[in-house]
Design a protein around this nucleic acid. Structure first.
Lengths: 183, 183
DNA sequence: ACCTGAACACCGTTCAAGT
DNA sequence: ACCTGAACACCGTTCAAGT
């Protein structure tokens, strides 16, 4: 929650800005102390506004995640059910692979707004694809997001990896969720 | 390298034993300082024997990884090429999902004996499966191990996850590497 | 209400001094 | 050769004191 009082609101914004920069530069494990320092704020102030690292990640990536959810709703109206889902997953994968820290903002949790938004938006595409017989019945939206996050986070933590590797691996995993022809 | 001198060899063994226990209890990020303490050894002694966390992980899981590699060689002689590969990957996934820290011992690296052993053993199965037309041509053994490690590590880091979730997700990913029928 | 700096309890790594 | 304990430079979190 962004505070109402002017000085507190300013600190909040500066913390989010400093965190965005730090996550982009050093990944989701960037030092909270240094984020506070760069925001020109005491470390206790950071902890009051953001009681956990997750809360800070959520604040930083909220808009980005919202854009991905909007994209899901748009493609639900236009594209064919199966390709709408897989296309969206690939798009999410590309975003996550190209944005350090974004994957960490999506880890499951009932108090994680980013994850909840994505699960809700993605579930619409999944349900539609399932009705069309385009995906296996036993796959949940949680499974799909976990695969995207797992692959992106792992590749992200590797020193010499570019995003293209994550996208290729994700492509393989996505094919696995498609309805297999019998035989 | 296990030292030759008696006192150093004893310290080495106690460090590996303490690390095995710590990794099992707290995962691959267990405190190195506490491992040294439990081994009854100064922290500097740990760092000389194992200059990186990775080196300690490798030492702890070397035998386990060797067993998985032996399993690969055995199934290469007996089973049908496609199922030999996917069966082995599932078996690796089950081991990794049921053994905290094991996934971390498998991250790629030219100096990581565990990863090198697995890549070599797995490549035999993969090449055989590819010749039989059972898997897509563009998939590498690195891809397959990365998928297994990515899924297992991610699920492992989640508070409320049991190994069965990792195995189910891995099943999906493995299906993705199978040769798709055209159309 | 909100902030700050200091205090606390931890890390991993390195190094001088010992045997 | 090998070990130890202390020192160093960091963490994240909390709390008394300030405005």
């Amino acid at each position: 929650m962004r505070p109402r009082r002017a000085d507190a609101a300013r600190n909040y914004d500066q913390l989010v800005a400093a965190a965005a920069e730090a996550f982009a530069r050093e990944g989701a494990e960037a030092s909270l102390e240094e984020i506070a320092r760069r925001a020109g704020v005491g470390s206790a102030t950071l902890h009051r506004h953001f009681p956990s690292r997750q809360a800070l990640l959520t604040a930083v990536f909220h808009d980005r995640v919202e854009a991905l959810c909007r994209q899901a709703r748009e493609s639900a109206g236009s594209a064919e059910p199966g390709t709408a889902l897989t296309g969206w997953l690939r798009s999410v994968g590309a975003s996550v692979a190209g944005t350090r820290g974004l994957a960490s903002s999506l880890v499951p949790g009932t108090d994680n707004a980013c994850h909840l938004m994505m699960a809700e938006a993605g579930d619409v595409l999944l349900t539609r694809a399932r009705r069309a017989g385009a995906v296996r019945a036993e796959v949940s939206i949680g499974d799909l997001l976990t695969l995207v996050v797992a692959i992106s986070m792992t590749v992200e933590h590797r020193p010499g990896a570019d995003g293209s590797e994550a996208e290729r691996l994700l492509g393989l995993a996505i094919d696995g969720i498609r309805q297999l022809r019998q035989g």
